[in-house]
Design a protein around this nucleic acid. Structure first.
Lengths: 330, 330
DNA sequence: TCAGACTTGGAAACCGCTTTCCTGGAGGTG
DNA sequence: CACCTCCAGGAAAGCGGTTTCCAAGTCTGA
């Protein structure tokens, strides 16, 4: 393993000079020596040891992203947005996947702290559990105490910079759009009761219905993923319109209806939330609430890296996108 | 930022003892001191500095994965498999996305080398360009010279451990399956001419057709992604059966046909390759060649970390999965 | 011609941790 | 009881860089 010292020796210069030439510095180095160093480094195949650099500089050029599941298009889009932003700033990305286990999330924060990453991005919904949230907050506090920056995509529950989608408002807006098409009997595939994102969307949806004087929808709880939607779709009763609190659940529900011979949108209308990329080619095209996922990821990184001392909360608006999975029944 | 020295001081022990307690060692530490150190560490909120540890130990616990695009389900599945395997061994994962730029891939290898990651996984097809491949090989060689381990998913072109799917055989097998349904006029959405994966699949497909005495298919080149498939689908002429060399292209082609009012499979049959997860809910269900993507990712990590000095090439078989996107026209 | 300001190169301290080597005391043996 | 082996604990030498601080030139301008 060739070190800077090897390069310096081969070039006949000091360690300091070699460092200044190869790894950047405010100081100038004469053209002659600079050339000698560069040649030596090239001949030897020198690569700076980032661990040593990080140690010496006291700062790394790595950021951490913690997601639930990379194969979920929602997280993939978020992560991709953040990674592009990171690459644009010459930062490397360390990814942790929790597979929806809050303990894992806490553990990853500790790990990222140990790695002394510049910033940690927490993607994915918070759970409504004071114990877990408290321990996560404590771990984040430790990290911040040692100079770490944090941003979160989801709910502003952690006391950190947060990119918060307007889940409640989006759910409400969707409800109004669907009601405008004449629907009155709704069902909500509401996901897990303790998941904030799911709850907010569901709550917004229900509040808007109530405001419109429509009957309360049937609420079916279940897992927040495709199979959860699939299973929940069997319990939607006589609803003419079903709202799944995220797109992957909606896709699962559509699959269930297809298998049962229930036609969408003829027999039942279906809507989701997020507008994940894979919807583009889904049949029937799914009505949803579009969130600018990649931008949100990038924004989260900006927030984390930004100077603002106080936690900034952005309120990201969702846009209702009506597609063929819902029918006008007026 | 609290250091091990702070902990040692607070506990009234030496640096060595604190290190042995907190960061693992073959050596024992007495129960009394051990407890003191642990308490001090907890009180102070100590987190080991991995950069320092990596430097001192001369080995990191990070691996690197370089993919083209994380939002592509193919790479997401591969990466997820590798990440699960890594997590199982207590390894962290650094991800680089090249967005299909070979220069970026080379740059990432250099970067991962600088990070002194334990191993680098290269996912994604090689391009048939001696210059690029040569430079990549040189960079890999540098990395290996300094103790790095490498594995690649795709073609065995780099002289490193490789997980190679049976692209040629899979293409051929698919061709035979489709021919058995009575198809004789084929088209191939062949992707970019220089991309090895695309070429191998196409070549296997064509060879099998020739062997069966069937006419040569119409070959349409284009990008290796969804939009490439979409665009290429407009040039399939009078073929009764279209083979897209990967699933995302096939999905794009299906979208194009849908828009044109061409019915699948009534008017034209369509098949893809990979069996990406999102196919599960696609309509019509796509015929494809299934590859165990997550396993391949995990296997690549195993190979890279494995002891075998010589490059091992695994030949991963694909399994033809007939679904409703193809029709029996006998 | 010479003091003063700039520039360039090098020596060495330091970043936080691991690990070798040394020391002193406890335990076992003849 | 002397002798030897073991073992826990600590001092200190790295690991591979960065950066401060000096020293020695090199330019200016008076």
């Amino acid at each position: 393993m060739v070190t800077l010292e090897d390069v310096a020796k081969q070039a006949g210069v000091s360690l300091a000079t070699a460092s200044r030439v190869l790894n950047g510095s405010t100081r100038q180095v004469g053209a002659a020596l600079r050339a000698r160093v560069e040649r030596a480094a090239d001949e030897l195949g020198y690569r700076a040891n980032m661990a040593a650099q990080t140690l010496a500089r006291g700062a790394s050029n790595v950021i951490g992203i913690v997601v639930h599941d990379l194969t979920d298009p929602y997280f993939a889009a978020l992560a991709d947005g953040a990674m592009r932003a990171a690459a644009g700033q010459g930062l490397l990305v360390m990814v942790g996947t929790t597979h929806r286990d809050p303990e894992q999330e806490i553990a990853y924060v500790a790990t990222m702290n140990a790695q002394r990453v510049r910033a940690v991005l927490l993607a994915g919904s918070r759970v409504d559990d004071p114990d877990v949230t408290g321990r996560l907050r404590r771990e984040l506090e430790r990290y911040r105490a040692s100079g770490g920056r944090i941003a979160c995509v989801g709910q502003d529950l952690l006391g950190v910079d947060t990119v918060a989608p307007a889940n409640y408002a989006g759910g409400a807006e969707l409800a109004r759009s669907l009601a405008a098409l004449g629907h009155t009997r709704f069902a909500v595939l509401a996901g897990p009761p303790h998941l904030m994102t799911a709850r907010d969307r569901c709550a917004g949806f229900m509040a808007a219905l109530e405001e419109l004087g429509l009957p309360e929808p049937r609420v079916v709880h279940g897992p927040f993923d495709r199979d959860g939607g699939y299973a929940a779709a069997r319990q939607t009763g006589d609803a003419t319109c079903v709202f799944a609190v995220n797109d992957v659940m909606a896709v699962g529900a559509l699959a269930a209806y297809r298998e049962q011979g229930v036609r969408v949108p003829d027999d039942v209308s279906v809507a989701g939330f997020d507008d994940i990329a894979t919807l583009r080619d889904h049949v029937p095209a799914l009505t949803t609430v579009r969130l600018p996922l990649a931008d949100m990821g990038a924004l989260a990184l900006d927030l984390a890296l930004g100077e603002g001392d106080t936690a900034v909360v952005e309120h990201i608006a969702g846009e209702v996108v009506l597609r063929e999975s819902v029918r006008d029944i007026r």
